[in-house]
């Protein structure tokens, strides 16, 4: 596979390490009322789509960027690659 790094262009997937669903960015609030429940869902519940999937990849043998890759699990077509840091901010993460 080839991942089109938003800063570096096409790079072989061999340079990357896969982590998993993009929702791993949405780490729950530890002080919330339902923290235990929320962490359970965060840790163990994933969608398993036959189709478009947003997922985290780490450019370990590259610039050490975490990326959010939108990949079709049926065709492996990659339609979008973003810097995970930007996605994290979009999803409301900050400090």
């Amino acid at each position: 596979m080839i991942i089109h790094h938003p800063l570096l262009g096409p790079r072989d997937a061999a340079e990357f390490v896969y982590k998993g669903d993009v929702t791993l960015i949405d780490r729950p609030d530890w002080q919330a009322e339902d923290a235990a429940e929320a962490f359970h869902d965060y840790l163990y519940l994933r969608d398993n789509p036959a189709g478009e999937h947003r997922e985290l990849w780490f450019h370990e043998q590259g610039d050490r960027s975490w990326l959010v890759v939108t990949r079709n699990t049926l065709t492996h077509e990659i339609t979008k690659v973003e810097l995970a840091r930007d996605v994290a901010r979009e999803r409301g993460r900050s400090r």
Partner: peptide, 14 residues
């Protein structure tokens, strides 16, 4: 790797 994940994806503005 996990520290970079925490830095970039969990607390990107630290």
């Amino acid at each position: 790797r996990n520290m970079e994940f925490a830095r970039q994806c969990l607390w990107p503005d630290l």
